[in-house]
């Protein structure tokens, strides 16, 4: 699946956040959106992932425009996963229940937990595991429905170097899924297939490695 953004403009109040963004992102690869704070990378991530509607322009998943999708919740459930800076695990559910919260097939959770190395934490609660383990659980939750794309906003923002590298390595392991990562973290450069550099709401550079 290919994700295509055309002429994306976005305003927040009177502020022009994004300027004529045009890009294409392939699934099955890691795309990093990098830039300084205020460069517009998170807003772009939100627009690409259907969480935010652009002031103008369009986003297409293959030939389907997000605007034309009648049931965006169902589309999100089947095609899109999210990983946030904070793990945002629901504290009254254990790790497994968090992962299967909106799973199309809850039986996949065991294999996924194993693949992420947290199968022994299935029955633990978020306050009983480490920060790195929480983020792994959040990644598992994003991956449970085999989405085409996982959008991650500063996924390593709260992790130490070791855990941060662990997260990027995990992204590399799930080859079928495209990861779109908005981050300050320079370490992403070693893992990303495509890097989109943002500056003051403009795409400054797109390069593939």
């Amino acid at each position: 699946m290919r994700l295509k953004a055309e002429h994306i403009e976005h305003f927040y109040a009177q502020e022009h956040i994004l300027h004529d963004i045009n890009l294409e992102i392939e699934s099955s690869c890691i795309t990093a959106i990098v830039g300084e704070s205020g460069s517009g990378k998170t807003t772009l991530l939100a627009i690409l992932s259907s969480l935010l509607r652009a002031s103008s322009g369009s986003v297409h998943y293959d030939d389907i425009s997000l605007e034309a999708i009648k049931n965006i919740d169902e589309f999100r459930k089947k095609n899109i996963g999210f990983v946030f800076q904070f793990h945002y695990l629901i504290d009254y559910l254990n790790i497994e229940e968090n992962i299967t919260l909106n799973a199309l097939d809850a039986t996949k959770s065991s294999a996924l937990l194993k693949a992420l190395g947290i199968e022994h934490l299935a029955s633990r609660y978020s306050d009983e595991v480490s920060g790195g383990e929480r983020q792994r659980a959040a990644i598992a939750r994003a991956l449970i429905n085999d989405p085409t794309f996982v959008f991650a906003d500063e996924p390593t923002g709260n992790l130490d170097t070791k855990n941060a590298i662990g997260v990027f390595e995990l992204f590399k392991e799930f080859k079928k899924t495209g990861f779109v990562v908005a981050t300050h973290d320079k370490k992403i450069i070693d893992y990303a297939d495509t890097i989109i550099e943002m500056e003051d709401g403009f795409v400054k550079n797109i390069y593939t490695q």
Binding site: I17, G38, T42, A46, L51, F84, E154, G157
Partner: peptide, 13 residues
């Protein structure tokens, strides 16, 4: 509840 608030709570933009 707008899920965007989760991203904004993360502090980035």
């Amino acid at each position: 509840v707008d899920p965007m608030s989760l991203i904004l709570q993360g502090g980035a933009r």
